[in-house]
Design a binder for these strands. Structure first.
Length: 639
RNA sequence: GCCUGGGUAGCUUAGCGGUAAAGCGCGUCCUUGGUAAGGACGAGACCGCGGGUUCAAUUCCCGCCUCAGGCUCCA
């Protein structure tokens, strides 16, 4: 066996995880809860095998121990449910731990939120009773008898029967379950438990299967950890872009407009305009030409592009007179059509088209959520028509731009290579070539990447970026996609050096992905405290009394290349400061008699720092630099 | 789409078989204030939409619309 520190351990051929632990030391042996065998969490009774990497999991309160304990908590949940409801009727499905807790799926169980309290109380009794949790190896045939009334368990059993002679059961008190484990030694080890949600879940995650009742919960070693968890959830709620979006008047999604169709209010549109200007500048530097295409095309175009065949279920398609039309789910066919209208020499390539293009995709109703999943959204789209020999350098250039965007927002990211999906167009040969090219760029850049087999677009493989926000959540972002198929379908050509017609390659790319999703992520990442260059209101001037109002307006006019407001309400300074904070304005300028006499200002930032006797010129110079350099934090008072 | 829970003033929420309450915000007035809510008064609600039960429905029942969480973690 290979241990985490790299050392090797010799054990008998039939040794278990627990035996290995005792071999290392008797203290470790008796503390053993489970093991990680080549990365898999397994029961301590599981046999080890030659050459495997082994890590012993003890009751040290680490992630793995929590997982084991939560798995046991899910058993308590099922036990409580079978005690309180008709155990003959209710059928057990599965009950694994998750990253944040655990769940158990039941069939034929009808519960509401009030029942949850009763179930939770019963679970606490089970924990209190401190039943020993015992593992038992049972021959398949006997297992079948024990599970005669549990159709889902039998279905699972069938699958194990191929590879194993016995299966394990875990028993606590009067209740037992078919389960691979691992589990803690007794129910009393579960410190604090809470049930969270009732949800529906398809058996084995398949829409074709019946829907079962899933109960979510979580468990921790003690009450204070549980409280911290609940607090963290509340904090995430505070950051929610839907809440902040409405507080800051950024956008709304209203019943009258229909679902997934956001309306951007002036402050929100201000942010979007800044985001758009940023990539427009980058695109100009990278040699892109802007184009514009309508929101709607005849389905002839979608047939030509292959969307009709491969994407129709996600499209809004409708009859108009004798013709059928579809709202555009992607901008590429329009751009390909523009390219097709010209005649091109190899010298003209690459041709790079860009458009902030609004697209419409008919997502399932239940999938819609705030700005993160919508029906109508805008992509900072770009399509390149390149010679085969230009692919790698163009992909490199795009990745440079993406780096610049993500660095501007201080976002860490990971990349993944997504390969051919089941539903796709084009020959195997073309796909292999495309995948190989992207792989080679990633290798050249020495970038670590994950392989997402089958996750590519239907027309080509892609490199997807995922970034992490301020509280560690992952989001989809930029993407670079190779496309050998669209040029075929549109019969795109250029004349080569040899005076023959050649086929260009298309590259699809976006730096943000969609504005909607990027905007949402920024709102939550910054908690609405946008960097100066993005802030809808950048500076607010607060006169101490009405006497200073005229001077306040004069000061504001000195900042007319910024989004500046004067708080001219009849209110105390305290109230004005409070309001400026609530509205998340990066800088407040405070002017009273002292400032008016001296002809200067006081500056306050969102961190509550303040400086008096500031020259207007000096602050304006700083502000321009902070804005133009796109710094993420207001730093006038923070140097 | 399916499961569970919501939809009451611009926002956050309370309430209930007898057509509604609070805080913030907004308006007017008093106040002219020096660093995170000064005071008084006032306006503001087809209680998501449609149907049913009832003498009476925002409240109970049914349907629809819409929002949130889940349906991805696999004994």
């Amino acid at each position: 066996m290979v241990l985490p520190d790299g050392s090797e351990l010799e054990v008998d051929a039939d040794a278990t995880v627990e035996d290995c632990a005792y071999e290392i030391g008797p203290g470790l042996g008796s503390d053993t809860v489970a093991g990680r065998l080549d990365g898999d969490l397994v029961a301590k009774e599981e046999p080890v095998y030659d050459g495997a990497e082994l890590e012993i999991v003890t009751d040290d309160g680490g992630e793995d121990y929590l997982r084991v304990m939560r798995h046991s908590a899910s058993h308590c949940l099922a036990q409580a449910v079978e005690r309180l409801f008709d155990a003959e009727e209710v059928k057990l499905a599965i009950g694994p731990p998750t990253d944040e807790g655990f769940y158990y799926d039941f069939d034929n169980l009808d519960v509401d939120e009030e029942d949850l309290e009763a179930i939770e109380a019963e679970m606490k009794e089970i924990v209190e009773a401190d039943y020993d949790i015992e593992r038992e190896e049972v021959p398949i045939e006997e297992a079948e008898e024990r599970l005669a009334d549990e159709p889902y368990k039998l279905e699972l059993l069938e699958e194990f029967a191929d590879e194993n002679d016995t299966v394990s059961f875990y028993k606590q008190g009067e209740w037992e379950d078919l389960c691979a484990g691992p589990h803690v030694d007794s129910t009393g080890e579960i410190g604090a438990v809470k049930l969270l949600e009732i949800a529906g879940a398809y058996w084995r995650g398949d829409e074709e299967n019946e829907m079962q009742t899933r109960i979510y919960g979580t468990a921790f070693e003690d009450e204070s950890d549980l409280e911290a968890f609940i607090e963290r959830r509340e904090e995430a709620k505070e950051r929610d872009h839907r809440k902040i979006g409405s507080e800051m008047n950024l956008f709304s999604i209203q019943d009258v407009t229909g679902p997934g169709l956001p309306l951007y209010h002036p402050p929100g549109k201000t942010v979007l305009n800044e985001l758009s200007a940023f990539v427009t500048d980058l695109n100009a530097e990278s040699g892109y030409d802007y184009v514009e295409t309508p929101h709607l095309f005849k389905t002839d175009l979608w047939q030509k592009s292959g969307h009709y065949e491969n994407y129709k279920d996600d499209m809004f398609v409708f009859e108009l007179g004798d013709d059928e039309f579809g709202l555009k789910p992607m901008n590429c066919p329009g751009h390909a059509t523009i390219f097709d209208d010209g005649s091109w020499s190899y010298r003209d390539l690459p041709v790079r088209y860009a458009e902030d293009g609004k697209v419409y995709r008919k997502e399932q109703r239940g999938e819609l959520s705030g700005l993160s999943r919508v029906w109508a959204f805008t992509i900072d789209d770009g399509h390149l028509f390149v010679r085969p020999d230009q692919i790698e350098s163009e992909v490199e250039a795009i990745m440079d731009s993406i780096d610049e965007v993500l660095q501007t927002f201080d976002l860490e990211y990971e990349v993944a290579l997504a390969t051919r999906p089941e539903k796709s167009v084009g020959s195997d040969e073309i796909w292999e070539k495309a995948e190989a090219q992207l792989e080679s760029v990633l290798e050249d850049r020495e970038m670590a990447y994950e392989l997402e087999a089958g996750d590519g677009a239907f027309y080509g493989p892609k490199i997807d970026y995922a970034f992490e926000d301020a509280i560690g959540r992952q989001w989809d972002g930029p993407t670079v996609q190779l496309d050998f198929n669209m040029p075929e379908r549109f019969d795109l050509t250029y004349v080569g050096e040899d005076n023959e017609e050649h086929r260009p390659v298309m590259i699809h790319r976006a730096l943000y992905g969609s504005y909607e999703r990027f905007f949402m992520m920024l709102i939550e990442h910054f908690e609405g405290n946008f960097p100066l260059w993005l802030a809808p209101e950048q500076v607010r001037v607060l006169p101490i009394s009405d006497e200073n109002l005229a001077y306040a307006r004069e000061v504001a006019s000195e900042f007319d290349d910024f989004r500046v407001e004067v708080d001219d309400r009849d209110a105390t300074l305290e109230r004005k400061i409070r309001a400026a904070h609530d509205d998340r304005v990066p800088y407040q300028i405070i002017v009273g008699d002292n400032e008016e006499e001296a002809g200067n200002i006081s500056v306050r930032d969102r961190f509550e720092d303040q400086e008096y006797d500031v020259a207007i010129d000096a602050f304006r110079r700083h502000l321009r630099a902070e804005r133009d350099e796109k710094r993420t934090e207001p730093d006038f008072l923070q140097d």
